[in-house]
Amino acid sequence: MTFFFEVLIGGLLAGVMYSLVALGFVMIFKASGVFNFAQGALVLFAALTFVGFMEKGLPFWVAMAVTLAVMMGSAILIERFVLRPLVNQPPITLFMATIGLSFLLEGLGQGLWGSQVRALDIGIEDLPFDVLGMTFSKFDFFAAGCAALLVGALVLFFNKTRVGLALRAVADDHQAALAVGIPLQFVWAVVWAVAGLVALVAGLLWGSRLGVQFSLSLVALKALPVLILGGFTSIAGAIVGGLIIGASEKLAEVFIGPYFGGAIENWFPYMLALAFLLIRPQGLFGEKIIERV
């Protein structure tokens, strides 16, 4: 039984890391109704930029501030040159644009900073400690703390600020928001900048676990079932979805995997999410869309 709980808690902690990536998707989708295929590339780009500045001799916090500035600058450029020309276009057009953006960011990041694998030390030890015969890592709890802080900040931002309110209006209806004087361009730039911040936090945490390398862009694959399960528009959904996916994939890998030859944790979460869609198509916390025809 101890082993079961060790796997379960380990899975929940892994799920928090998935949620961190999923949050970036939720930001963009809430504001523009666009599934941002480039979120994984943003994570890679942010981590590469941060490590690149660190290698240039910048202290940790300065590198963090400069990277954040770069991510905000990128957000403004993305809004100006990718999104603005596509206002009022069908969502699939915007989605396709983000696919292009994903390749651009991956290439640009590696072009600017190189394709070498780099170590990233954020000063948090990844050492184990024992509790009731179970082994956990300090780093995982630190990551969970970061995720909690980030979620708290985002909830406040969306619910207690004018920009957050405007953002929710834009998410509801672009044209209606424009009609009441909400500056769509500004809101989009802000939300992409926030997604950049989320990508930076995710990039630093994942990068310190895996090293900063191309594979960071693949962490997005871990976020997709989280979004399907939790809903594309809910911050709480991203967190709860992450926890469910993380725990279920680890339990499945350990207790069911051997019957399938192992390595099922890549496809199991997708299967679970698809099964869930049959019952609740909008996800756990997603908004139920009713359209009059």
Partner: peptide, 21 residues
Amino acid sequence: KHFPVAHPGLDQKAVWLQIKQ
């Protein structure tokens, strides 16, 4: 005993918990 890790191997917690056991 053989333990496959699915490409690209970003998260191996489940495998290493089995190793521990």
